[in-house]
Design a protein around this nucleic acid. Structure first.
Ligand code: AMP
Ligand code: AMP
Ligand code: ZN
Ligand code: ZN
Lengths: 280, 280
DNA sequence: GAATCATAAC
DNA sequence: GAATCATAAC
């Protein structure tokens, strides 16, 4: 999420476009959540320059770090999950939950717009909702792959699976899709339009500070289903959103509250919740 | 480890004596590495007070947080692994590796001394080495319990185990004891004498900054076997030890170096090494 | 020792 | 956005 409304920015060169925050295996789809170690930089001059003139501060270059995935998805086989006519689906490089993907529209006409502007385009929001729905199904099945073995509600189904039962006679099993959330941050930090496809758990080493948690667990997180937002929607208020990031914490699972200066306590609580949640 | 040599300290009350940094199960021995959620404070006035007079700055009270384990081990059933005539063995509350225990001597005559002083006592160092050797075996067997299923060198042995072979016909298996290190920090932060019993991996969420890594992976970590140190041993030099904490990183497993301002890179590398190491 | 907060520099 | 470094306050 962006630092805090209307910030003036310096012109700074950027470092690497794609280092990873986690490790283990490598392999885009099958290893859905495993980030990557180093990897390529954007190939060409992907960041326009305005420096020299007085007013306009040059945009920080790291804000453009999602563009290479759009322009050159084949260069990021570990990160890119799917490319369709209209979108690129990637692994978030600093996943804030067990599953965390980003859906990027390929249309230059839209990818440079702020979500609230882009989603006014009816055909565009409609396309994005469809692509996101399909991405969410993918995320759900990957979540299932990761935690089904701990799941009580999947027990019967998994046993039927073992005994090679046919789909028709298999009990339904856990609804993983309901654990996947789809939406944008009210104040994105990364320039190119992206929709988060994320599991609810917030169990990740990459959740390191208050804003990480609150940006996904307050109204700062805007469901794609709510787009386009009506004029006057609270969520369009900058001060409202800045305040959301500074709020006390509320556990996504049980509603327990933690003072905003008790992030470490929240983290320990999330660890416990994660274990229980897997077992649901 | 201590902040940096000879520091002047303010008089401050302490908060909680025993919160935990990890989560999951609870159960001292069987769940060797699982820390604890809250737990008791020291019962009585365990911290002496000198305030009032001019020079001596009152010791920070958190430095006394290991004392309750010694004075009242039965109050910490999740943390305390073993109590013998001479020592208390506990889980480190912020484990810096897969296995991380602390061995605390019970003798008030020794537990307040700096390691370099205490270990001059021949009977004492001898006792501590024996207790530590036994604690290390315990740590090794717990390490085995945690990672043996990934281990190539344990494969044959584990299969023999499955088929209920007798110990005599079982292949030897991995030497976990060689993965356990035993020693003290050159400048401990916690007041009461404690010996670290720690697996080599440094794979832990609690390893959060440079000093965490370097205090266990430079000469700042003093093997118990090297005690008592000879007069004139480099490791008794404060400036030498302060410098150790500020050094570039060296991977414990492959020797790869990382600039000291690349801690995040080191962490990613340690994640990779951990996966490979488990599979040895 | 752990943890929160603020601040550069990428 | 991530990451390093310094600084209180416990
Ligand atoms: N180079 C990158 N590749 C992939 N994801 C990234 C990269 N840099 C940042 N991110 C993620 O992009 C998201 C941007 O968040 P926001 O702009 O607040 O919606 C965060 O979830 C980051 O973890
Ligand atoms: N309350 C506590 N209970 C158990 N271990 C602790 C506690 N506080 C700190 N520690 C550990 O004690 C060790 C002290 O390190 P040092 O004084 O540098 O040898 C570190 O490994 C800490 O994680
Ligand atoms: Zn909860
Ligand atoms: Zn290495």
């Amino acid at each position: 999420m962006a630092e805090t409304a209307e910030d003036a920015e310096d012109f700074k060169p950027d470092s690497d476009a794609s280092t990873s925050a986690t490790s283990k295996k490598r392999n885009a789809f099958s290893e859905l959540m495993a980030p990557k170690p180093k990897s390529a930089k954007p190939e060409s001059g992907s960041t326009p320059s305005y420096h020299g003139t007085k007013t306009k501060p040059k945009e920080k270059s790291w804000r453009g770090n999602l563009l290479p995935y759009i322009q050159n998805p084949e260069s990021f086989p570990k990160a890119v999950i799917r490319v369709t006519k209209d979108t690129v689906l990637i692994q978030d490089q600093y996943p804030k939950a067990t599953i965390h993907l980003l859906l990027l529209p390929r249309s230059p006409k839209h990818y440079d717009l702020h979500p609230k502007e882009a989603f006014k385009d009816e055909a565009f929001i409609s396309m994005m909702k469809e692509e996101a729905a399909s991405a969410a199904k993918l995320a759900a099945s990957e979540l299932s792959r990761k935690i089904s073995r701990f799941s009580a509600s999947d027990k019967a189904r998994n046993e039927a699976m073992e005994s090679l039962a046919s789909e028709a006679e298999m009990p339904p099993g856990r609804d993983y899709l309901s654990e996947i959330r789809v939406g944008t941050h009210a104040h994105p930090s990364m320039r190119h339009l992206h929709v988060h496809i994320i599991s609810r758990d917030m169990h990740s080493d990459c959740v390191k500070h208050r804003k990480h948690y609150n940006s996904f667990n307050t109204s700062f997180f805007v469901s794609l289903a709510d787009q386009p937002l009506a004029d006057g929607d609270d969520r369009l208020s900058t001060s409202f959103q800045n305040a959301n990031l500074e709020k006390d914490f509320v556990c996504w699972r049980c509603g327990k509250e933690f003072r905003k200066d008790k992030f470490a306590d929240l983290k320990r609580h999330l660890d416990v919740e994660f274990e229980l949640w897997k077992k649901e």
